[in-house]
Amino acid sequence: MQDDNKNIEQMADQIQPSPTQPRQDVDHGKTVGKIMLLVVGMFCFAFALVPLYDVFCRITGINGKTNVEAAVYSAPEVDETRTITVDFITRTHSGMPWEFEAQTRKVDIHPGQMGEVTFYVRNPTGRDIIAQAVPSVTPGQASLYLNKTECFCFQHQPLKAGEEALMPMVFYIDPQLPENINFFTLQYTLYDITETAEDAVEVAMN
């Protein structure tokens, strides 16, 4: 076999300088190792996509999610030349029995001006339920300019059986809002998270 290989290499050399003579005696382990790095890397990359997607959406606003933390009102100059219409839509996720509605359906507001809307919720069932409201803005780009200084959606919303509540949301629109947006919709979806959040909110309810 040794001789064979030698002969072949000689033959190959005579024919042309080939970049790749090595055959089965090559260390395949090295090549496999490199490929395995790629495999593991891509597996991790897929999980890295989860936070990357969040960051990307926060920067571009493409999925219409609003900031999950309260903004501080920086008292920008109110731009009275523009009036922005904000629509409020409420819905409950399927299987969520609460009544949930916006007391103000629509607000006309100048950029920079503070606005306040209240949402009414009632738990008509005989059991305690913890809810989570998830906001979504359409068009998504507007979410970057919607600043909420106070919102019920920042916390869980626990209601005892039969209880009702008014939940406030205070906001202002960044005067930087692009010229082409004069109207946007803020939608809240209420999810029943009693099962997953029981422990966490025990404290809050007492």
């Binding site: 072949i8 290499e9 033959m11 190959a12 024919i15 042309q16 080939s18 790749t20 003579q21 090595p22 055959r23 089965q24 090559v26 395949h28 090549t31 496999v32 490929i35």
Partner: peptide, 11 residues
């Protein structure tokens, strides 16, 4: 991949 990288015939 390993076969193609490492086991091609001379030339």
């Amino acid at each position: 991949i390993v076969t193609i990288f490492n086991m091609r015939a001379p030339g």
